[in-house]
Nucleic acid binder design. Sequence first.
DNA 1: TGAAATGTTGGGGCG
DNA 2: ACGCCCCAACATTTC
Length: 516
Amino acid sequence: MILARRQLRARGPFSTGSSVLDVSSNIALLWFRSDLRLDDNPALTAAVESKSAVVPVFVWCPEEEQAWAPGAASRWWLAQSLRDLDARLRAAGSRLILARGPSLPTLLRLAEESGANAVYWNRRYEPASIARDEASKRALTDRGIAAHSFNASLLFEPWTITKSDGTPYQVFSAFYRACLARRRPADPLAAPRSLPAPQAWPLGLGIDALALEPASDWTAGLRAAWTPGEAGAADQLTRFLDGPGAETYEHERDRPDHDGTSRLSPHFHFGEIGPRRLWHAAGERIEATTDAQLHRSTDAWLRQLVWREFAYHLLYWFPHTTNAPLRREFATLPWADDAAHLRAWQRGLTGYPIVDAGMRQLWATGWMHNRVRMIVASFLVKDLLLPWQQGSRWFWDTLVDADLANNTLGWQWTAGCGADAAPFFRVFNPVLQGRKFDPDGVYVRRWVPELAHLGRKWIHEPWRAPQIELDAAGVTLGAGYPRPIVAHDSARRAALTAYARIGARGREAGKTRGTL
DNA sequence: TGAAATGTTGGGGCG
DNA sequence: ACGCCCCAACATTTC
């Protein structure tokens, strides 16, 4: 701390930074990855407390994510978030050094240039990241550079929660109970006021050199919808905790026509806010009130937070599930191969208004309401019988909150092929779901302007509307707005038939195993 | 975090 | 008044 203050003073307006008194000459790299915040950042706090000068670095290397390099929307967010992080670091007397990967050689170069003898980072849990980080830790240590890693992004790291026989949980409710039975997560750490700067900064790139943002600017919708960065995350949390949605979250979160969700998912993905901060805020709220509904609502969103933990748990223990079903027998399901159907789904031209509204919200804003994600996912997998991997790939490329663990869990849940998955016979009816969760059609009209003048009675099934109503609303089915690309009732029956065959095979296999 | 099919019940119209 | 039928509303089962 003393060192920090001394250096801050030395970095006054007339200082070049080279006159800093340097006693110990300990220098630490702080390797930012998906923890783009100063608040509750254990690696950052540890680096500062180690009495080292701190060199914050971010290394861009999508190749190391293997098949799952960030998509365009995610890269846009990353660029904004890195700018924000750099600004916050500058306010604390530091700055962010940007570099292009591969990570390990880049860290070694930066360590050499800055004279660092330690690297601090917060752990990631994707299979490729784990392998990369373990190799990096070994290589750094071999070269006499200390490597320290921490947990910033989970309440409970995946290997700390197992059943009594040591195997991972595969059922959410049991996992949830096990989490609640734990000692409560540590309190969040405060952001350091200042970061001790080194005498000289290593060479870094400008953000444009990382080419994160698209060449042609289609990001107006993203910019209108989001404020990436730590302050944006904090604002969003405040809005959510204090806003009218807070006490009614339990039900409001299912209403895409309202604003009842936290909309924190992209902030979470990039680590602009951590789960301990949210857990802590929830705890304070529960202690401060006796309102039963507020309790239930708070429980409901902590439950959502634990779903996120469950997703990381599953990804850690079953890393192949990003591409292949956890329940192997689902690989043999007779999936369709229909490029036109896939394209109609992607573009929001299926003829089912709630599905199309969701897909267009995704395309325009990089985000989709969670209830609608379930509806469009069910439609792709059950109505179109297209492989869930095609859906997860599209979400990956278009979501600003694209997250390997959450995306994998969500799609395997929908397809019924994952841990604690939806039962195969659960097929969402897009008309009923629309009526139930967007009863006035406000959400549909917002994202499907062709239907803007259609009344609430037919808004979720325009193909059944009397011609006179369609004319009055200026809707021309088949031209302005498509007719349904499949009939839901027959599509549903076809899916049940296909899935039932898998079910029979699964039971057969189970019987066989049982007799062995 | 579903929906359809099927079963049950009870009120009211009506002969 | 009574029994029969219809059917809405709700409950249960099934996919």
